[in-house]
């Protein structure tokens, strides 16, 4: 059974096509990696799958529901760890966890022990009563991951979850995720720039570039297809060696326009 179905999905922002007619399916219980260089359209796709953005065209089904028609049913199906920070800095680590637990309707009986277990997993239990604004970047990242794992959804989206984490935390995190995946059949959909992580964790991998899917298969299939020895080389062979610039925000966009006009002189 396919838990995620995407058909001809397109998203345009003022003339710029971020996602260009992509189609793929993810099976229930799969660990699925979504790879691509910066600005390839990964985060935009995740935002559409998680109801934050609306697509320009195409169909999406999450757990059988359409994010446009029934966003609440879709939101009941997934959990997400965002690429950018999304903590409330004024609240303590514990309060951030509690708030998430209440929003995601984790019953108090399960919530309290699980919060303790997760904060210990990411080594923040001793700092539970400190406001998130006193945390370093790495600690905030760990808190976000602990928070994302607090409820066990049907689908877990992880957008570059391990960025800036040390190998120990990464290891803890993936062990925990793999265990829920095995025990509860939770589907995992993640993006990463660490190719060895994708190779180790993902059953199937999709490579997206310039908004289009350019490869889909297991790590060994991708290596075979590109006649390379590692996924990193396969990735480079598929997407090229050129460094990409990301259109991050409105002001970046304005700067780009400024450059375009400046070069006409």
């Amino acid at each position: 059974m396919n838990i995620i179905e995407v058909r001809d999905l397109t998203k345009r922002f003022n003339g710029l096509t971020a996602v260009d007619g992509i189609s793929f399916e993810v099976e229930k219980g799969e660990i699925f990696a979504f790879l691509g260089p910066n600005g390839a359209g990964k985060s935009t796709t995740i935002k559409i799958l998680t109801t934050i953005l609306q697509p320009s065209s195409g169909q999406v089904r999450i757990n059988g529901h359409d994010p446009l028609k029934d966003p609440d049913a879709v939101r009941r199906s997934f959990g997400i760890v965002f690429q950018d920070p999304s903590l409330d800095d004024d609240l303590t680590a514990l309060e951030n966890m509690e708030l998430h637990g209440v929003l995601y309707k984790v019953p108090a009986k399960t919530r309290r022990p699980r919060i303790e277990m997760l904060l210990k997993l990411v080594d923040l239990w001793d700092r539970r009563d400190d406001q998130a604004k006193t945390f370093s970047g790495g600690m905030k990242r760990r808190l976000e991951i602990a928070r994302g794992l607090l409820h066990h959804p049907d689908i877990l989206f992880l957008d570059e979850p391990t960025l800036g984490l040390d190998p120990q935390t990464r290891n803890h995190m993936w062990n925990y995720i793999q265990e829920i995946n095995r025990r509860e059949g939770m589907t995992v959909f993640f993006t990463t720039h660490y190719m060895e992580e994708a190779e180790r964790m993902a059953g199937r991998i999709v490579v997206i570039d310039h908004g289009k899917i350019i490869a889909l298969g297991t790590a060994s299939e991708l290596k075979e297809r590109t006649a390379t020895g590692s996924l990193e080389d396969a990735f480079l062979a598929l997407t090229g060696y050129e460094i990409r610039e990301e259109q991050a925000s409105g002001s970046d966009h304005l700067r780009a326009i400024g450059r375009a006009f400046g070069s006409r002189k």
């Binding site: 998680t50 109801t51 934050i52 609440d72 939101r75 009941r76 199906s77 997934f78 997400i80 965002f82 950018d84 920070p85 999304s86 903590l87 409330d88 800095d89 998430h100 929003l103 995601y104 309707k105």
Partner: peptide, 17 residues
């Protein structure tokens, strides 16, 4: 402010109306 620090996203994807 919540949009800028990203916290709003956290509430907007929650399974609550």
């Amino acid at each position: 402010w919540d949009k800028q620090i990203g916290f709003l996203k956290e509430t907007m994807v929650a399974p609550v109306p």
